[in-house]
Amino acid sequence: MRRLLTGAAVVPLAMIALAPSTFAAPQGGQVSGAIFTTDVTGAPVNLNHYAAKQDVYLNGGPGINAPIGAAGLPAGTYTFQVTGPKPTQLLSSDALACRQFTVDGSGVIQSVTASGACAHATGTSADDPGITVQLYPYADTPNPGGVYKAWVTPTSRLDCNRFAKYGCFNPRYSKTDNFKVLENAIVEIDTRFWKNGNALLGMAAGWTDTVGASNVKYSEYNPAILAYNEAHVEAAEEGTHTITVSDQAGCTIDYVTGPNGERYRNGSGSYSVSVTVAPWNAGDDITYRVEVYCK
């Protein structure tokens, strides 16, 4: 049974108001779109938990319930890596040149030919017309909770001189998604959207992780993977994360509540909620909730 943790810091920040039909544009040069970890088929995996490191694949786009065409990556060539929750914990063991893929104008992963002879294995995505890309080989995480972090960044943004501590990746231009192997403990940040007492699906919640990389999650209902109307951030690592919610089609925000039930209403149409994930203790299953109330 998951429990809701209290005592997490939640801070509302005024942001630029957005048109009701849009989600927040990337800030400070961030790359638009989203990624998620999956299995070889591209189908969502329960709580981002995997039985073996070889089972984890990468997919581009938003997954279930997102609007068609939403969160596709910009066309181009990308490089990926796997680390522990700390960016200095580089786990990918092959060369950067072996960890590349391309995205076409449709916004999904199309090819690993950019990696040449050492390209990673691929599968066919069940969710879109693209492919999935195997993350393996990578070493075991040193994190006691079994947390791994997958990174994707435009290859043109790699900088091994300035950002060597991130494995040549700059968090500002990177997408990340967390996952676990063998470890089943649940530590997650869930954002739900409500209107007239009904849960809204396909609503976007931006996530900025503890190192400043970003991604987009969408609210979904899929009991097979324990998704009950939430936009899930799974395997959240210890530290401070930010959930960003904004006015979008179907939801003009009235107010937002944080994990402790604090209520925030600033009238800007956009909120950044700071959620501090506590150190993980063996056996803990913890859910931090952000609730968005629409009018």
Score class of each variant (00 low, 15 high):
R2L: 11
R3N: 15
L5Q: 11
V11R: 02
M15N: 13
A17P: 05
A17E: 00
L18P: 01
A19V: 05
S21M: 04
T22S: 06
T22Q: 05
V31M: 02
S32C: 05
F36K: 02
T38A: 08
D39S: 03
P44F: 15
L47N: 14
L47S: 12
L47W: 12
N48P: 08
H49I: 11
Y50I: 08
A51G: 14
L58Q: 06
G60C: 07
G60R: 09
G63D: 06
I64Y: 15
P67A: 14
A70Q: 07
G72H: 10
G76F: 10
G76W: 05
T79S: 13
T79W: 03
F80V: 11
Q81A: 14
V82R: 00
G84V: 09
P85C: 13
K86N: 11
K86H: 09
T88G: 08
S93W: 00
S93A: 05
D94W: 11
L96G: 09
A97N: 11
T102Q: 04
I109Y: 00
S111K: 01
S111H: 03
V112M: 03
A114L: 04
C118V: 04
A121T: 15
T122V: 12
T122G: 10
T122A: 12
T124K: 06
T124L: 05
S125F: 03
S125K: 04
P129L: 06
P129Q: 08
Y136T: 15
P137W: 10
A139F: 04
T141Q: 07
P142C: 08
P142N: 08
P142Y: 04
P144W: 03
G146F: 15
W151A: 01
V152D: 02
P154N: 11
R157A: 08
L158R: 12
N161D: 11
F163L: 05
A164E: 01
G167M: 01
G167D: 01
F169S: 02
F169H: 08
R172N: 11
S174D: 08
N178A: 15
N178G: 15
F179E: 03
L182F: 12
V187W: 01
E188M: 06
R192D: 14
F193D: 05
K195Q: 03
N196F: 14
G197R: 15
N198L: 13
L201K: 10
G202N: 14
W207V: 13
T208N: 08
D209E: 06
V211M: 09
S219N: 04
E220P: 00
N222Q: 13
P223H: 10
I225S: 07
I225R: 13
A231G: 13
E234W: 15
A235G: 13
E238W: 12
T240L: 08
H241R: 05
H241T: 09
H241Y: 07
T244D: 04
Q248C: 09
A249C: 15
D254W: 02
D254K: 02
Y255S: 06
T257E: 06
G258L: 00
P259H: 12
Y264A: 03
G269H: 01
G269L: 00
G269C: 01
S270V: 03
S270T: 06
Y271N: 00
V273T: 10
V273C: 11
V275W: 00
T276L: 07
V277E: 01
W280C: 06
A282Q: 12
G283C: 10
G283L: 04
D284W: 02
I286K: 07
R289F: 11
R289D: 13
V290S: 06
E291Q: 12
Y293L: 06
